[in-house]
Design a protein around this nucleic acid. Structure first.
Lengths: 210, 210
DNA sequence: CGGTCCCTTGAGCCCGGTCAATGTGAGTGG
DNA sequence: CCACTCACATTGACCGGGCTCAAGGGACCG
């Protein structure tokens, strides 16, 4: 699927769940007046669009950030798979629980961290999650398919302020982010600025992505 | 369990999941320096502490806000239940998906709404979710076991500012919140201030809680 | 090589934070 | 039934991080 394509939109009643095989997908919500919040960056392995108990309409949308390959699983099929293979049920539950946990961490970032901390946290998170996909790979430079506006939407800031924060982080020789190219100059200080305890940070570097 | 008791703490590796039968539980995270974010208010029916794929430590804690009754289900037991009853798997998946969805909505609130909107949104949410537990009940006054400080922690504000916002909402005759007693004076304007489309708001009033 | 995103930077403002003092409700023990 | 206490709520003065508005300056693409 091409860049910009919607996997599903706000307000739909989803009949299928999506399993992301490759590429990046943004999960986002909108307010009436157009304010946007990016609530999650889905990376390969992610499961998206699982319906909630009440047959409510879905409150968030999913859009391809890059070229994307997804497998689409109709709800009916999901039901039979869960019936046939309890192992899958367990994995699905874990994956969903992980999504919630990541969401809680983002919420904390947005609610309680300063702009500088939020940006550092997001970059660190994207770096480690992205990197986790090529185990053994220690690149310090990678392509993150995001504009500063999207970083703003993810962190609850305006893109103008994101720009200023990125400037200072660059000036401080901590990270360099320019036209979607991310280079971590000083991992330790980045972890420090992000306000993550180093212990936790280390474990991030060994974890799988989703 | 008594008020203030922890069901589980940040950093633990959970061996059991919890099903809340009655009472209120806060799910919260902490930053190193003590800043706190309440990420969820769990109401009866909620499932808490589902472990994530990677055997990572849990990044949030759960604490009883009121007297609480929970059923504790060891992970091992959960596995066999999922094996025996695929129906449960489906329900668990839906419940977890719902948690994620609620988390996304909160994130949007914190990231993109003004203080006034956030507080209105939270009160409205708690009102409808709490109310959904006694179907057919149309009380306009209820006890919400929260201090203004906790409202602040949930909305990403300071309790001082929460107080000011509540003052204006009271002066505007929209809601009255005083010493844990919540009275909705003007539901329509509350929905408007919260920035929820009335359509969605209506559906909230028919939905079950979790 | 023109167009279109995207990034960058400046000036000024305001929402929400900080610090600090005071008020108030509700239980507790005398 | 009153006095005490302690947690919670309220209010004021002032401050500053992040937003708004606005005007350029690159980078990439056809």
């Amino acid at each position: 699927m091409p860049v910009g394509r919607d996997l599903f939109r706000i307000g739909e009643t989803n009949k299928s769940i999506f399993n992301l095989l490759s590429g990046w997908v943004v999960i986002y919500t909108l307010l009436e007046d157009g304010r946007r919040q990016i609530v999650h960056f889905a990376l390969p392995g992610a499961v998206m669009g699982v319906p909630t108990s009440n047959g409510a309409k879905i409150s968030y949308g999913a859009q391809a950030l890059t070229e994307v390959v997804v497998s689409v699983i109709p709800n009916t099929v999901l039901a039979t798979v869960l019936k046939d293979d309890p192992e899958v049920s367990m994995r699905l539950a874990s994956t969903l629980a992980r999504d919630t946990s990541i969401a809680y961490d983002h919420m904390t970032s947005i609610g309680r961290r300063t702009a500088r901390e939020r940006v550092a946290y997001l970059l660190l998170e994207l770096f480690t999650r992205h990197r986790a996909q090529w185990p053994g790979n220690h690149i310090e430079e990678m392509v993150i398919p995001l504009t500063q506006e999207q970083i703003g939407d993810a962190t609850g800031l305006t893109f103008v302020h994101v720009n200023r924060v990125l400037s200072t982080l660059r000036k401080d020789k901590i990270v360099h982010f320019h036209y979607r190219r991310l280079r971590i100059l000083d991992p330790d200080r980045l972890i420090e600025v992000a306000g993550i305890d180093p212990q936790t940070a280390m474990s991030w570097f060994e974890r799988r992505s989703t």
